[in-house]
Design a protein around this nucleic acid. Structure first.
Length: 745
DNA sequence: AAGGTAGCGGTTTTT
DNA sequence: CCGCTACCTT
């Protein structure tokens, strides 16, 4: 197994720079890997080489990635070279790695080792609760903004106290953020919960304050690899530095031109300054691109050249020039979608596969129009991201139940489920319980256990007693049940499933389906974990918390479908045919960026464009729409500056596709309105009109209806309208607000 | 306590 | 445009 021939084989087909990167096995190594330069091959072969030829034990190697998907792929590829030994290599994302460290030693930081992990939604809820407690008006201080400040502070390794010190005199928002951060962190700790940023920050803190823990990992990990190093934030940077400073065999791979995560704290200077941090660094540049045809690559190079803050680099390729980049100006977003379909069909007709094709856009919302068009076509598709499985209400509910069972003192989960399904325990009751808990410094669940002293009587009292009994039962049964059985029992005994079954609506059925889907997730977990594992439930919950939703579509993805995803989700992937849609000023670069007026933000968007272009292997289609519905209004956007940055000689411009009738447009062609005019949106009926019984009107949402009765006058005029659609029936509307127009009978 | 409605605000991007 | 929230009603 450990043969020298193996070593030669490991270098097979690599260019000199790639070989050097594989063989370099002492000291810091910085690999500047351009798009499509085969960096994954280099990384995997390097790891295999260390094990096979340098006889490094697999468990002495750490490889950090940013997504679970990348970790999985890396593990598979190393395994292909050296066999199952690869399973012992510590390959994981930053976050899973930190969870593993913290599950062992979080008690040293005052948390229990079974702490729960909060997702974005939970974080926001927690912030809102803090605002309430601190009597801060969420309208004046946007909870999302505050959360972003807190998150930034954590990425910069600022504790609440240190963050407060950084707030400048007169910075009102900062002052509030500092107060909220303190309350928020206190709340999380009381709930034994950590958010995503905590996972990294607390691990760094643990290493900095517990020498023994740090040494354990420093001594064990002889070789450390970090993929996508340009995406690391300050906390991640520090973490890597702490781990690597003893053995100093640190290999980082990245491309500053593909840094697209500044908005979540990624600090491009981490990679730019790597050589300063480790003066003995060897730098290897991988500039040969093996992915794209010549003209596509030229287009990418030309676009990225417009960035001022950048280290010069020029990707080259020996591939043929290939086809010109195709540019389509569509009439509107619907014809843009039609264009994608037409071209896809053409690709199939000429012998291509659906799976060759990817449609990339700036924001998830853009997928809707394209999906609607695809639904009516014969083209199979898979959307990545978008509506997220783990963000659905029913899934969050059942997870909250499981969390509560794992930790009865988890107030955040408790408040989520105490009245789901409806038990007659409303806001008022919950408020009293929480007040009582706060005064006595106990958890909400403990307060529920002494509900008599809280002073809740009647229906709520009985419901709470039943709830407490149920939860305690679950908690005591937890060690003997698989996660699947536990989940089924919860759904049954809480009446959650029953309630949905009785609803008999399409929506309820979909929710039930999702719950069944969730049960297959638990079943998969149970297959891999023995009942004797004490912390199974906690383990399951952290696994679920760390899954990125863009990854979870994987299992069920139709192999023969075109793929729709955001540009961010496409990073690291490649496709023979790529559509970049919505290339308009205001869409991409986005309005936020343009209004912000910060040139560095535009540069980040440009890097995103660069990422998009370099995903394409053979064909690249760019498109933009002359007009587009945005926020309910038709907007005409200029073509994106990023298109203009591609030299015209690389572009093959294809004519405008004529507008096609769509249902949306039919709906706006109400008699009496000018064709194409906008349907009233934010305001009600025309105030100059009078409304009489017997007249027919058209309502924006409910369609045609007859006025059967009127009440009041002027601003208070109320119309009783019997709508044609029986499912809608009669409605009472205030004429001043109702989005209605008159029709000619 | 629960259900409905008007008003408001929001849209990046994700571990 | 859609979805969420803060009220208002029952």
């Amino acid at each position: 197994m450990f043969s020298i021939q193996g070593g030669e084989k490991m270098l097979e087909g690599l260019n000199p720079q790639q070989k050097e990167a594989v063989l370099h096995s002492q000291g810091p190594l910085l690999i500047i890997a351009g798009a499509g330069s085969g960096k994954t091959s280099v990384l995997t072969r390097r790891i295999a080489y260390l094990i096979n030829e340098r006889r490094v034990a697999p468990w002495q190697i750490l490889a950090i990635t940013f997504t679970n998907k990348a970790a999985k792929e890396m593990r598979e590829r190393v395994e292909n070279i050296i066999g199952p030994t690869a399973l012992d290599i510590w390959i994981s994302t930053f976050h899973s790695m930190c969870v593993r460290v913290l599950r062992r030693d979080a008690d040293k930081l005052g948390y229990t080792n079974s702490f729960t992990i909060l997702d974005a939604g939970d974080q926001l809820t927690a912030v809102k609760q803090c605002l309430k407690e601190l009597n801060i008006d969420p309208k004046k201080f946007d909870p999302r903004g505050l959360l972003a400040s807190i998150s930034n502070a954590k990425n910069d390794l600022l504790t609440p106290e240190r963050f407060a010190d950084t707030v400048r005199e007169g910075d009102v928002f900062g002052k509030v953020a500092a107060d909220v951060y303190i309350a928020y962190q206190k709340k999380l700790k009381a709930n034994n919960a950590m958010d995503f940023d905590d996972l990294i920050m607390k691990t760094v803190y643990l290493f900095q304050h517990h020498e023994d823990v740090l040494s354990l990992y420093q001594n064990r990990l002889h070789y450390i690899h970090v993929d996508e190093y340009q995406d690391t934030n300050k906390a991640q940077y520090k973490l890597v530095q702490l781990l690597a400073q003893k053995k100093r065999n640190i290999c980082v791979v990245g491309d500053s031109d593909q840094s697209i995560y500044a908005w979540r704290g990624a600090d491009i200077t981490n990679i730019l300054n790597f050589e300063k941090d480790y003066p003995e660094t060897t730098v290897i540049k991988l500039e040969q691109n093996y992915r794209s045809t010549g003209l596509i690559l030229q287009a990418a190079n030309k676009v990225i050249e417009n960035n001022a803050e950048r280290k010069a680099k020029n990707l080259w390729s020996t591939k043929p020039e290939g086809e010109l980049v195709k540019l389509y100006k569509a009439y509107d977003e619907h014809s843009e979608a039609q264009f994608v379909i037409q071209q896809s069909l053409e690709h199939i007709k000429s012998g291509g596969k659906h799976s060759d094709i990817a449609v990339l856009y700036r924001t998830n919302a853009q997928s809707r129009v394209i999906e609607e068009a695809l639904l009516k076509s014969t083209v199979p598709y898979t959307i990545y991201g978008g509506i997220k499985f783990y963000e659905r209400k029913e899934i969050k509910d059942i997870i909250a139940y499981l969390r509560l069972i794992a930790n009865l003192n988890d107030d955040l989960s408790l408040t989520r489920v105490i009245n789901v399904p409806k038990r007659g325990v409303g806001d008022t009751t919950v408020g009293k319980v929480l007040d009582y808990a706060a005064i006595h410094e106990i958890s909400a669940f403990q307060a529920l256990m002494e509900i008599e002293s809280v002073g809740i009587r009647g229906k709520a009292n009985g419901a709470i007693k039943e709830f407490v009994l149920l939860m305690r039962n679950f908690a005591s049964q937890m060690p003997y049940l698989t996660v699947t059985d536990l989940t089924s029992e919860v759904l049954k005994l809480t009446g959650y499933r029953k309630e949905l079954e009785l609803e008999k609506t399409l929506e309820a059925d979909a929710r039930l389906e999702n719950l069944d889907e969730f049960l297959s997730v638990t079943a998969e977990f149970d297959n891999k974990h023995d009942l004797s594992e004490e912390n199974r439930l906690v383990e399951f919950l952290s696994e679920v918390a760390l899954i990125a939703d863009s990854e979870q579509t994987d299992g069920e993805e139709g192999p023969e479908s075109i793929k729709l995803m955001t540009l961010h989700a496409a990073k690291g992937l490649e496709f023979p045919v790529v559509f970049l849609v919505g290339l308009e000023e205001g869409m991409f670069p986005s309005n936020r960026t343009l209004l912000g007026g910060d040139e560095r933000d535009v540069e980040e968007e440009r890097r995103l464009m660069y990422v998009g272009i370099t995903r394409a292997e053979e064909k690249l289609f760019l498109s933009h729409a002359g007009s587009r519905m945005m926020y309910g209004q038709i907007k005409a956007n200029a073509q994106s500056r990023f298109i203009r940055e591609i030299p015209p000689n690389l572009i093959d411009e294809v004519g405008i596709i004529r507008r096609q009738p769509t249902q949306d447009r039919v709906r706006s062609e109400i008699p009496g309105m000018q064709n194409g005019a906008r349907v009233p949106s934010n305001f009600g009926a025309d105030p100059n009109l009078t409304w009489e019984v017997g007249e027919w009107v058209s309502h924006r949402k409910w369609g045609l209806g007859e006025i059967v009765k009127t009440e009041g006058a002027g601003d208070n005029l109320e119309l009783y309208i019997q709508f044609e659609d029986l499912a809608i029936g009669m409605k009472k509307l205030l004429a001043r607000f109702a989005p209605i127009v008159k029709t000619e009978d």
